[in-house]
Design a protein around this nucleic acid. Structure first.
Lengths: 144, 144
DNA sequence: TTATATAAGTAACTTTTTGTAACTTACTCT
DNA sequence: AGAGTAAGTTACAAAAAGTTACTTATATAA
C-alpha cells in the first residue's frame, strides 16, 4: 500500500470540501451520500452491478443464483431501486413462463467503472484487513 | 457522462473476472465484497471516513455533530469496526471528562482516496439520478 | 459538603429493515 | 385435468438501527 504524503492529504481535503459544498451545514435539504449513494453502495447492489458488468444480460433467477444468498424479496427491491435511479434497464417478454431481462444502462456502466476501482482496491487489501481484524481482540487504542 | 464503448465494457468484464477469481463459484469461503467492503461502504462509514479526511482529528461528539443524524450507538459500533479493520486509530486521554480522538490511519487515507473518486462521481451525477427517480413513477420497463 | 457539569460511551427498549417460506399468475405440455 | 415454470408478492420471524435514559470519574460551583 502506497503511503500518502501530507500534500496528498491536503489535496484530498480540498476535494472533499469542494464535493460537500455544504460541509458542516446542518440544514442541507439533501445529501448525495445519504440519499443517492447509500442506495447503490450496499453489498447487494454492488454485487448486482458487478455481475451485470460481467454477464451483460441476466434474468431474475439467474441473478439470484449469481448473487448467492440474496432473497427474492430483497433482489426484487434492489432491482426496482437500481432501475428507478437509472443504473439498469428491465425488459419484459410476456411469454409463458414470463421472461424478464436485466441489463446495465450506459449510466450503470459508467457507475460500474468507478465502483470497480474501489472494489479492486478492497479485494486487493482484504487479506490485510482481515489480518487487522483478527489481531484486534486486544484493542488497538492508544492511551496517553 | 462519458459514453462507454464496447471495448471498455470488455475490459471491465475482464477486470471483474480477475477480481473475482471465484466468480460463479458458490463455495467461496469468503467474499471480499460481503465480508470486507460491506463494512466500510455503508452510508455512515462513508461519512465518518470523509469527515475524518477533511478534519484530520475528531473527538466522538465532534464526529457525532459532523455526521449529523447518527446515533451514539451506531457511531460507536461503526467506529469499532473501522478501528478493528485498520481504517482509523483511537487515542484515549484519561482526563476528566474523558477525551478520545479518532484519526485516519495511512491505510484509511489510502481507502479514502479510492472512496473519494466514487463519491465525487455520485455527487456529480446525483441530480441526474434524482431526476430519473422522479420520472419513474411510470415504470421504465420495456415490453416486447 | 453535597450538587452540577462534562465526554464518551453503554443498556434497555421500540421501530425499521432484512430475511424466510409459502403462495400467485398465466399460460403450456403431458 | 394436473404438473411445471419464471418472476415475482405476501405474511411472518429475525436482525439491525434508532431512541432515551443511564454510567463513570472527577473538577468546580453552591
Amino acid at each position: 500500500m502506497e503511503t500518502i504524503t501530507e500534500n496528498e492529504k491536503v489535496r484530498v481535503a480540498k476535494k472533499i470540501k469542494k464535493m460537500f459544498g455544504h460541509i458542516d451545514q446542518r440544514t442541507a435539504e439533501y445529501c448525495p451520500i445519504r440519499d443517492v449513494m447509500a442506495l447503490a453502495s450496499d453489498k447487494w447492489s454492488i454485487l448486482i452491478v458487478l455481475y451485470l458488468g460481467y454477464y451483460p444480460i441476466l434474468r431474475f433467477n439467474e441473478l439470484k443464483k449469481k448473487v448467492y444468498g440474496i432473497s427474492n424479496k430483497v433482489l426484487s427491491e434492489k432491482l426496482k431501486f437500481l432501475e428507478a435511479d437509472g443504473y439498469l434497464s428491465r425488459t419484459l417478454y410476456p411469454e409463458v413462463p414470463i421472461r424478464v431481462e436485466y441489463e446495465l444502462t450506459d449510466f450503470g456502466h459508467s457507475y460500474l467503472q468507478k465502483l470497480l476501482d474501489l472494489t479492486e482496491w478492497v479485494t486487493q487489501y482484504s487479506d490485510i484487513i482481515l489480518a487487522n481484524r483478527k489481531k484486534s481482540g486486544k484493542s488497538t487504542t492508544k492511551v496517553f
